[in-house]
């Protein structure tokens, strides 16, 4: 599988580590009223879809960047790759 890195071009997936669901980018506010429930959801609950999924990949054997990859988990087709730092909070 090739991941088309936004800065470096297509790179082999063996250079990357899969770091899980991209919902980890949106950490809940600990001051919010139902923060306990939100953190349970944030830490443990995943939708795990068979289809389009947004996920985090870390380029450990490369430039050490975090990527937000939109991938179809059924076909492994990669639909979009963005730098996580550019998408945080959007």
């Amino acid at each position: 599988m090739l991941i088309d890195h936004p800065l470096l071009g297509p790179r082999d997936a063996s250079e990357f580590i899969y770091m899980g669901d991209a919902k980890l980018l949106n950490r809940p506010n600990w001051k919010s009223q139902n923060s306990k429930t939100k953190f349970l959801d944030y830490g443990y609950l995943r939708k795990n879809p068979a289809g389009v999924h947004k996920e985090l990949w870390y380029h450990e054997q490369g430039d050490r960047s975090w990527l937000l990859v939109t991938r179809n988990t059924v076909t492994h087709e990669i639909l979009k790759v963005e730098l996580a730092r550019d998408t945080k909070g959007k």
Binding site: L8, R11, D12, S14, E15, Q61, G62, D63
Partner: peptide, 10 residues
């Protein structure tokens, strides 16, 4: 210059 993996080594 590129950083990559060869034979499991950085």
């Amino acid at each position: 210059v590129k950083r990559t993996i060869m034979d499991h080594l950085n």
